[in-house]
Amino acid sequence: MTVGLNAFILVAGLLFAIGLLGVILRKNTLVLYMSLELMLNAVNLALVAFSRYNGSMDGNLFVFFIITVAAAEVAIGLAIIVALFRLRQTVMVDQLTALSR
């Protein structure tokens, strides 16, 4: 394979940028949360690429832990979103402005 490390890191960086665009552009909490997952995923891709090109297993183990932590984080976060919806009947962040008044 002639595709080098830089190409994989470029894809990971662009994926991270797209996730950041989603976080600052969207108003829906669920889409925001999916964009956060996308950024975590971009970091995973970069870690696996570095691990492969360094010939070390450590990056793969980090990705393993990141996937586990992300699963736990998604469970907690979605429970919080459901609780928020139960309280406020909305998941749009521009309507959740109780602290800014």
Partner: peptide, 13 residues
């Protein structure tokens, strides 16, 4: 992304 992991030979991931 999983397919990119396969290209990087991280099959388990």
């Amino acid at each position: 992304t999983a397919a990119l992991f396969v290209l990087l030979e991280a099959y388990f991931l």
